Simulated scan of single mutants.
Amino acid sequence: MMANRNDDDSAAAPATRRRVGRPRAGVLSKRLITETCLRLIDERGTEAASMRAIAAELGVRPSALYNHVAGYNELIAGVRELISERIPVDAFEREPWDAALATWARHYRDVFAAHPSLVALLAVLPLAEESVTTVMYEAVIAKLGDAGWPDTHAVTVLVALESFVLGSALDLSAPDDMLDPGPRDDVPRFSSAYRARAALLAETGTRPADASFELGLRALIAGFSAELASLAATGR
């Protein structure tokens, strides 16, 4: 009987080893890997989303991931693609350029507010070739060009708005009372202004981050409109 058990064990061991490297979900793909990476980033932060951690989450060996992604940089680039797919650009087909920019900015902020850990990571990551993000930018720049923005200024407008949106996404994920000065008496003007704003927002049921975003967005769009008029007047 002992010999039979040893034979059974030795026969089963290779089969067990063969199963290692196969995902519990059944099919390993680049999209599954990048979606798992995004989920781990959301749950544990960017430092926790290593190739080894993703492999462990999927029940495979790390080497299995390299059949689908070249490495960590390509993986993070894939995460950016997942995020960009969730930011609609159809407003640029039906709205004036300034209204379309505002609509796009709101969607952009909401998507990144759901994944705040990605803001710092993706803000400094160069775009990959054939990137979905580049296609999104194409829609923005095409609309700006049709509205009269010269090529020399269109990308600058996009980046200026994008920088504001990403900062606002972080603000949206922060506590509403983050700036509360508390019972201090050495900052009377700030304390008074903070309490006045809090009272107003409580009346309207508006979150502080939303109020700041909408004010900033109106100011940016108004500034862009004034800049475009100035460029048209000077013929630049």
Rank of each mutant, 00 (worst) to 15 (best):
S131L: 12
R44C: 12
L75K: 05
V124G: 07
S29M: 00
F190Y: 08
A56W: 11
A53W: 14
L166R: 11
A233D: 03
A56R: 08
R61Y: 15
Y72C: 10
G45S: 10
E43F: 06
R80Q: 14
S230W: 08
P175I: 04
T134W: 06
A56Q: 13
G205S: 04
N6E: 09
G21E: 08
D180E: 01
L58E: 04
I87A: 03
E130L: 15
S168N: 02
Y108Q: 00
I54K: 01
A226P: 03
A229G: 02
E95Y: 12
A91Q: 11
A219L: 12
L121E: 13
H68E: 02
E35Y: 04
P62Q: 10
D210C: 02
E203A: 10
D176F: 07
S191H: 06
S117C: 08
L220F: 13
L172C: 12
D8Y: 08
Y137F: 14
R86G: 04
A49C: 06
P96S: 12
R24S: 08
T36C: 09
D98P: 03
A105C: 00
A113G: 03
F213A: 03
Y108T: 00
V111F: 05
S29I: 02
G21A: 03
A64P: 02
L215E: 06
I221F: 02
R61Q: 15
L38N: 01
A123H: 11
N73I: 11
A53I: 10
V111L: 05
E74Y: 09
S10L: 14
V140L: 01
D8G: 11
A70W: 01
Y66I: 07
R207W: 06
E227F: 10
K143L: 04
L200Q: 11
R5E: 11
D110S: 09
A229L: 03
Y137N: 11
P175D: 09
A211M: 14
E43G: 06
A128C: 12
R189T: 03
R31H: 07
M51E: 15
R184E: 01
R22L: 10
A211Y: 15
L220I: 14
W104D: 00
M136A: 15
A12L: 12
S29A: 01
G21L: 11
V157S: 08
V132I: 13
D90E: 15
T36R: 09
E47I: 08
D146N: 05
A120K: 13
D90H: 09
A48E: 06
A226D: 14
L200P: 05
L125S: 15
E35S: 12
P116K: 07
R61C: 07
L38E: 02
W149T: 05
L172N: 09
T133V: 10
E227S: 12
A233H: 02
S225W: 04
R31K: 14
L125I: 13
D7A: 13
A100E: 06
F213H: 05
R61T: 14
S163W: 08
V140K: 00
G182P: 00
P181Q: 04
L231R: 03
